[in-house]
């Protein structure tokens, strides 16, 4: 069974952390992953940087630019991760935009992910329909889970469709915003969380965007299976480097 599905069966709320690979320094990638696992994180999203990250706010944009300036590429990332399964056992997901994957070759990219032990991909700008028609077979061949996003504006019909083709979890975007834009959740979010919970979807939901501390993590996971912290953690890396990761995590869980 895919590590993601195993993890989703555990009887607990899951904390997933996003960080930009190759940031703050090019060779920090593996250290960040290992420290996150040691700190008790349940799942990690490794951000493959892109020059034009449409769905990201200033924090992740800046880290992406810095990582690219450091020399990060798909090839460099795969080399950094080639022995990662010798030391890390939690689910690892690569999150990135479609163009770099397309240039690498979607099949070659998936093959490489499978060899390394990557469990899934999140590609925000790959349309659901396009994935379903052109890439689903490739992902399945390499045992990769593709994670789709839903937002407060996604129609019920579309959520049902996305649920029907999800084989891992659904990435539930907390609010109409790019990453890192919110500081707290109000009644709009709790209404939305309740509405989705009431739909009894087959795929568990993990909430992302706007989770930055214990309070927002708790609010987000009242009914959802888990939550993802991205920008707040990237900010922590900017300020403290790779050293105090355990401290950051201990304040959330």
């Amino acid at each position: 069974m895919n590590r993601i599905n195993q993890k989703l069966q555990e009887d607990k709320k899951l904390l997933s952390i996003y960080f930009t690979a190759g940031y703050p320094n090019l060779n920090d990638t593996v250290t960040v992953i290992e420290n996150l696992e040691k700190s008790g994180v349940d799942m990690i999203e490794i951000g493959l940087p892109f020059s034009d990250p449409l769905a990201d706010g200033p924090t992740i944009q800046a880290s992406s630019t810095a990582s690219l300036d450091n020399g990060m590429t798909s090839e460099v990332l795969f080399n950094q991760l080639k022995d990662i399964r010798k030391t890390v056992s939690i689910p690892l997901i690569i999150m990135g935009y479609f163009n770099p994957m397309m240039q690498y070759g979607v099949e070659a990219f998936c093959k490489k992910c499978a060899e390394i032990g990557i469990d899934g991909l999140i590609i925000p700008d790959l349309p659901v329909q396009d994935y379903n028609e052109n890439y689903k077979a490739i992902f399945e061949k390499y045992g990769l889970i593709n994670v789709f996003l839903i937002t407060p504006q996604t129609s019920e019909e579309r959520i049902r469709f996305i649920d029907s083709i999800s084989n891992g979890f659904i990435y539930m975007v907390s609010s109409a915003s790019v990453t890192g834009a919110q500081n707290s959740f109000g009644s709009t979010q709790s209404d939305y969380f309740n509405r989705i919970a009431a739909m009894n979807l087959k795929a568990p939901q993990i909430v992302g965007f706007g989770i930055s501390n214990a309070e927002t993590f708790q609010q987000a996971t009242v009914s959802a299976k888990g939550a993802i912290i991205g920008s707040a953690f990237v900010k922590h890396l900017t300020e403290h480097g790779v050293d105090k990761i355990d401290k950051f995590i201990s304040l959330i869980k």
Binding site: F50, S51, D52, F98, N99, P100, Q103, Y104, D125
Partner: peptide, 21 residues
Amino acid sequence: NEGVIHGSKTLLMQTKDGQIT
């Protein structure tokens, strides 16, 4: 060469690694 920019698959100037130049 073929790639994706601003929501469209089209010809675009990019690095070998798919970063837009």
